[in-house]
Design a protein around this nucleic acid. Sequence first.
DNA 1: GACCTCAGGTTTCGTTACGAAACGCCTATA
DNA 2: TATAGGCGTTTCGTAACGAAACCTGAGGTC
Lengths: 153, 153
Amino acid sequence: MSRKRFDDMNCGVAQALDQVGDWWTLLIVRDAFFGSTRFAQFEESLGIAKNILSDRLRKLVDHQVLSKERLDEPGNRFEYRLTEKGRDLWIVLTAMRLWSDKWVFGRDKAPLVVAEQDTGRALTALLAVGEDGKPVDPSKLEWRAGPGATSKS
Amino acid sequence: MSRKRFDDMNCGVAQALDQVGDWWTLLIVRDAFFGSTRFAQFEESLGIAKNILSDRLRKLVDHQVLSKERLDEPGNRFEYRLTEKGRDLWIVLTAMRLWSDKWVFGRDKAPLVVAEQDTGRALTALLAVGEDGKPVDPSKLEWRAGPGATSKS
DNA sequence: GACCTCAGGTTTCGTTACGAAACGCCTATA
DNA sequence: TATAGGCGTTTCGTAACGAAACCTGAGGTC
């Protein structure tokens, strides 16, 4: 009767959820993007219980989304940093943020704006593109079996 | 001691997780994209317990991600369909799928490919663009308070 | 009317996960 | 030796999950 895991589903969505879909996990990753590196920082910023934070950090390190390094500081100190795999999650976070800006807050009440440093241009959308870098039409997409397809999508 | 909800966090990621971050919820949405509309279809395709499916469908309807309509069929039959808000989640699902293709399966072992119907061009990436439709540089982004900002990001 | 079927749930109950607080461990400084 | 800070682990009560049994309302059959 253990909680079902999704890692046996041959589907990218299920795999992503299996690695970062746990309650709290994506918020920890978001906090890492905001600059948190220490246990106490995550704890304070999120208001998460220590045991749960400990568990989630361990799983994130196991999945190589975060790295854990001992610091050259007095005491038993560590820092957690996003790996390249972890940094690649910014698109997932951005997609969620844009969706909420549109459907939960309303676009003119967004609590957070992401903009290019030098030009100040705000990031307002994600565009689906093909290998050639040109946009594909989202309304005309179809799902096909890929090279690693078995049964379930 | 109730499970913490994120709906009071003034952050788009937290809001999205509050509405669709529950265990199973995004997989139900994914199945809806694949064409499931009936209770039994979701149940069979996902292998989810009836009570949990029932709970998740109700929440998705509450949040207007799915609509529930009675069918003109004999018996007590309903269908669940994605609303516009729900269909807008395809970017989140796509971001997760691309992330897994890269980091879990490996790009050449992706179980699923999404391509444009007429041209056959595969969707291979999401591109961040500004209001002018031109790409922004992801490595030079900064987070700013938006119009609805309060304290927490 | 009495009975049956089927989709779509709800109830029940045992197991697992979560949350809060207390406690332990390691390192360093006084 | 004592104390303190950072980083967890342990403990324990509550909530969520999973499986199976049960219920409900609409229709069809006799």
